[in-house]
């Protein structure tokens, strides 16, 4: 699971109102090279919850990869360095083993072989 996906996912348990962002426990992660495409990054930037992305990168041990606060969108055209870091955080870091944790209920969704198990129990739907 890439941090892009983590950024989009929210807890789906019935009745949960503050299910975002999911906590990230990363026991094992890998880095895989992905084709760099600045247009994709510019398109997706407005949809990213910045604090959640920063938090997820930190959970993987990258406290300084991204600026703490959401940068002004103008960096997308002015800073290649920023784009490279954004690209790496969003698309190249993959969580292999660990868990996603609902911030409201504490329910853990285990991640195994890179795949989060989001199946809900019957009393959660």
């Amino acid at each position: 699971m890439r941090l892009l996906t983590h950024n989009m996912l929210a807890c789906n348990i019935k009745g949960v109102t503050n299910g975002y962002p999911l906590g990230l426990e990363a026991e094992k992660w890998v880095e895989k090279e992905v084709d760099f495409n600045a247009d994709f990054l510019r398109g997706v930037f407005p949809k990213i919850e910045w604090r959640a992305l920063v938090g997820a990168a930190r959970a993987l041990g990258f406290p300084d990869l991204l600026p703490e606060d959401a940068p002004d969108p103008s960096v997308l055209s002015s800073s290649d360095d920023f784009l490279r870091r954004f690209h790496r955080a969003l698309l190249e870091l993959h969580v292999e083993e660990g868990a996603l944790v609902c911030p409201e209920t504490g329910r853990r969704f285990p991640i195994s072989k890179g795949i989060p198990n989001m199946l809900l129990h019957e009393d959660e739907v």
Partner: peptide
């Protein structure tokens, strides 16, 4: 999904029952 891993699918995979809803933030896809 194991086959998808074997094939080295490039997308991210979720083990999920879509009848329970998708659990995505609004307006992002």
């Amino acid at each position: 999904l194991n086959i998808a891993l074997e094939r080295e699918a490039e997308g991210d995979l979720l083990l999920s029952d879509v009848g329970q809803g998708l659990g995505m933030r609004p307006g992002v896809i």
